[in-house]
Design a protein around this nucleic acid. Structure first.
Lengths: 223, 223
DNA sequence: GGCCTTGTTGCGCAAGTGTATAAATAGCCT
DNA sequence: AGGCTATTTATACACTTGCGCAACAAGGCC
């Protein structure tokens, strides 16, 4: 009785809630992306990630075999979201091919695709592509998927203009248009304040139409 | 005599050579860039860098107050080299503005500017621009410098064609052309094998000429 | 040649890292 | 209500990290 003194836990054990497995995984991945975007790969430690997710570090190992798998999961989620958003701008039915192309360019050069956080994540991960074949392949697949979408719309646009480009020309157009969008996307993410709202999209549309040899729609042709 | 036993250094102290200050700094910065490109920011530890540079880790502190300054120095050196190389393609005298523009595009889309290592470095550092104002400013300055160069050549090209674009048009052209070059540069660095030699340059030149509304030089106009 | 400066090494340290594992408790099932 | 189990916490551990410091020696100077 008297001997077993009061356990007197000086520090109470932390309260916690049990969450569904999928929910926790998503939370952890989101916290990982937050940390990578904010502190870089070196600053994204398990403890920081756990803190951001509102759990303790040990829990991560319950959902991921190790840090590497967590990062891979985070990158996969990021790429998935990016390509999904980019392609979403193409689904508008009942619009002329040209309108769809313009809408596609505009969507890819406006919020939420123009976003500094996403750019930071993209750059941080893609910077490792040279050393990590997994990343390199993931980029390649995403890039080709995106380019094929572009190529499909371009084909529609040119068909509507009674032009019949061969496969080689189509490929070149798609590569060039993809580059235009990528280049403007980067600048918009890195220094958005340098451009007035809608300016990047306008520049992009003009450049794309020039690449395809399309006459401007409304304005008088050049000066 | 007998007491002070043989010091008997089991391991001999490492031999070394004294190098000039500037030489050592450059070596250390180069080793840093190597490590960052190969292992990322997290893998670029003082010990790894020192090993690559052929010195011991402690020496780094003799030349840089801390790791952060070393990384800043490395990034500064990288940016300097990149812009220097990019601009070097413009110095050719005795060439028509159009030839200079084409040469500029070609140079920026060929080796050594198309280079996976440099791209990895660029991406790794620029990914931190969102969180590090120093990096953001460095990028901004480099970008504007590059864009101004582009704008100057564009002005020359259009002047030679008897066209008189206003400042706003010139700005838009420069932004678009810069984006074209950047976008193609990225693809060339990330997946160079996907393009035949000179293909990116050819696509870039065509896209730039389309953006400026220039008729192709040799071939019959379009198809 | 011997000294003196200082570039350079070698080692130690506290903080932080990813991983491993035991102890606790939240919440479902009966 | 009470037990079971899987989720979650907490702690330990081996290792690495950036940094500080004292000893050492390379190479110029007299």
């Amino acid at each position: 009785m008297p001997d077993a003194a009061d356990p007197a836990p000086m520090t109470a054990r932390r309260k916690f809630r049990r969450e569904g497995e999928e929910r926790r995984r998503q939370d952890l991945i989101e916290a990982t992306l937050d940390c990578v975007a904010e502190y870089g790969l070196q600053g994204a430690t398990l403890r920081t990630i756990a803190l951001r997710a509102g759990v303790t570090a040990g829990l991560i190992r319950h959902y991921f075999p190790g840090k590497e798998e967590l990062l891979q999961g985070a990158y996969t989620a990021l790429v998935g979201r990016m390509t999904e958003q980019a392609k979403a701008a193409l689904v508008m039915e009942e619009a002329s091919p040209r309108q769809r192309l313009a809408a596609f360019v505009t969507a890819n050069l406006s919020a939420p695709i123009i976003d500094q956080r996403v750019f930071s994540l993209w750059a941080t991960f893609i910077g490792r592509a040279g050393a990590d074949p997994t990343l390199a392949r993931a980029h390649r697949e995403g890039y080709l998927g995106f380019r094929n979408e572009v190529e499909a719309v371009v084909a529609e646009v040119l068909a509507a203009e009674q032009r019949e480009p061969d496969a080689s020309q189509l490929r070149r157009h798609a590569i060039a248009i993809n580059a235009i969008i990528d280049g403007l996307w980067i600048e918009g993410c890195l220094a958005g304040e340098m451009f007035s709202p809608g300016e990047l999209a306008a520049i992009g549309i003009k450049a794309v139409e020039a690449e395809l040899g399309l006459a401007p729609l409304k304005q008088d042709p050049e000066k």
